[in-house]
Amino acid sequence: MAMLVAAVEEGSLSAAARKLNIPVATLTRNVNDLESALGTRLLVRTTRKLALTDAGDEYVVVAKRILEEVDELERRAAGEFTTPRGELVVASPVQVARLRVLPVINQFLALHPEIRIRLIQSDRVIDLVDERADVAIRVGRLRDSSLIATRVGTLRVVTVASPAFLEKYGRPQTPDDLRNLPCVVFDSPSLSPWRYLCRHTGQAFTVADTPRLLVSSPDAAVDAAIDGIGVTFVLEHDVHDAIIAGKLHYILQAFEIEPIPIHVVYLSREGIPAKLRRFIDYAVPQLRRLLAEFGRIPAE
């Protein structure tokens, strides 16, 4: 079952074999034996990819659930529900992981030598069941009510520009002023189009002009803004160091939308492994402290 699931998740028998560190011939033989034992074809193999048959699609769904139950039983037998040990899988958005989660993980590992952590860094919403993840850090409004969630802070969505840029073009007074200014856009579904809200009148603004520069990472947007290419619109932790150093200034603060919440989430289940409970107890206050640091940056 594990070999079949790995083949489906990796997209090929060879990729699954590399992931499991076994010969391709061994994996292929085991999948063939499984199909023979079941008396049905599960996979359709082509030179480019694998596809599941209808029977295979149904089988893999159940197989994943069985493997999770077996994994939990083995962890119980190994004492993971009473002693913090074994692998912990943590998922987080890329920038949040790099700037805030990884320092907490490093400190946690130093305190718990019997725990191993696999950090999944991805800006897509990770399904904890599909990815077999124990805990995730979520940025944004939560949708899945089956998860246990603990709020650890918020992040502002900020607009910034360099001192030289502001000296050349002047400081925008309203979001409408951005339509006449060069902009650097970080191509992110959560930050496009640029959204604003007047705190005094409640009027909403949306700015979606053609950018002077379109980039695929917040770091690139910040670097371009520092170089004076244009105004940019990112999460506050992306510009934290640049603001402190005076390389960028906040603008349009009176029109910022509500800060985006950040939660630590994990699956609701009957028993929580000791490694997960220990991590949550450690990470939640540490993340709250780190995220609260943003609030101490002086406003302009």
Rank of each mutant, 00 (worst) to 15 (best):
L214A: 07
A242P: 11
E80C: 06
F108G: 12
I257K: 02
G271Y: 10
A110I: 02
E256T: 03
L20H: 06
R278D: 14
A37S: 15
E114N: 12
E9Q: 12
Y282E: 07
P261F: 07
A15K: 05
V158H: 03
C183Q: 12
I120K: 08
I229L: 15
A77W: 08
S162D: 03
I105E: 09
R288L: 05
V90K: 06
L109G: 05
K19G: 06
H240N: 11
T53V: 08
S217Q: 01
L128F: 11
D176K: 11
T47A: 15
A17H: 00
E87Y: 04
V90N: 11
A15D: 00
A133M: 05
I260R: 13
A245E: 15
D134F: 03
D123C: 07
L20V: 06
E35R: 03
E114I: 02
N21P: 03
E69K: 10
A97F: 02
A136C: 01
V152L: 01
R212Y: 06
R132N: 15
L99P: 02
Q253R: 13
I226Q: 10
V234P: 07
N32M: 06
P93L: 02
G11D: 02
V101G: 06
E58R: 12
L267N: 12
I297W: 01
A225D: 06
T46A: 12
D33R: 14
I105W: 08
A299G: 07
T201M: 06
F165V: 00
P175H: 04
Q95M: 04
V157L: 11
Y59F: 15
E300G: 11
A221C: 09
A97N: 00
A55C: 08
A292R: 08
R171K: 11
A91I: 04
Q253Y: 04
L252F: 03
P113V: 03
G202C: 06
L119Y: 14
E35N: 08
V231M: 08
V70S: 00
L290R: 13
L27P: 08
C183S: 14
A15C: 00
V94S: 10
V184N: 12
L191V: 05
I243M: 13
A7R: 01
F279C: 05
R75E: 15
R289E: 14
R277A: 15
L88Y: 02
E9N: 11
S14M: 02
A77Q: 10
D209Q: 13
L73G: 11
S188E: 15
N30K: 13
I105T: 10
P93M: 11
I297M: 00
R143G: 15
R132P: 05
V215M: 03
Q121H: 03
T232G: 11
L128V: 08
P93F: 05
A55H: 11
L178Q: 05
E131I: 02
A221G: 04
Q173W: 04
R269Q: 14
K19E: 13
I257Q: 06
V158M: 01
A164K: 14
R48N: 13
R118K: 14
R296W: 04
G56Y: 01
